[in-house]
Amino acid sequence: MSELLAEIPASALVPEGHYGPRTPAPGVVAAQLSQLALATVAVRPNALDLVAELALEKLGLALPHGPRTASAGDLTLVGTGPRRFLAIGEGITGDPLLERLGHAFGKTAALTDQSDGQMVIQLSGPRTRDTLAKLVPIDLDPSVFKAGDAAATLVALIPVLIWQADPAPIYRFAVPRSFTPAFLRALVGAGAEFGLQLTGTGRG
């Protein structure tokens, strides 16, 4: 596997496929999710209470308090900092997402399309936590980090936003697009011993 990682271009995504020993079922399933729209939401000073009301009224979302997620239908908000959120729309593109958020929040928040700026990688499978123990510097034990929790942190010195989408567990990572090849290399290196199935990256 290290031969493969040595041969593919440093700027290319790791090609999809199976890495590591063949087990009846892969220990880790990693997927690059497409058809997601992302946008940052930066709430104006003193407007957090108003935005929380608007989110509930217009989007049916309880604004996350602290580093947590909130979802309603195909829209998810992840808390990334005080008055800062990442909005993720499934099955849509950036423009309709911004239109929807702009319609809901008006001038109470600054919106920036990040659909071209970040890629989202989803991890699932029985050995996901064993893999992430080698990559993520925060404690992901279910007693500390549960479904709906989020954290902005570093993976292999790459700034990522991680959130747990499901107690199964399923984790999602928003990774800066140009760092995703390096992120996937670190991921494959950490997860291959458990058998890692990678999808959504095509031929790399």
Partner: peptide
């Protein structure tokens, strides 16, 4: 205060 206990390398 926002993220919780974190390693000093993040700062």
């Amino acid at each position: 205060p926002y993220c919780g206990l974190r390693d000093a390398h993040e700062f």
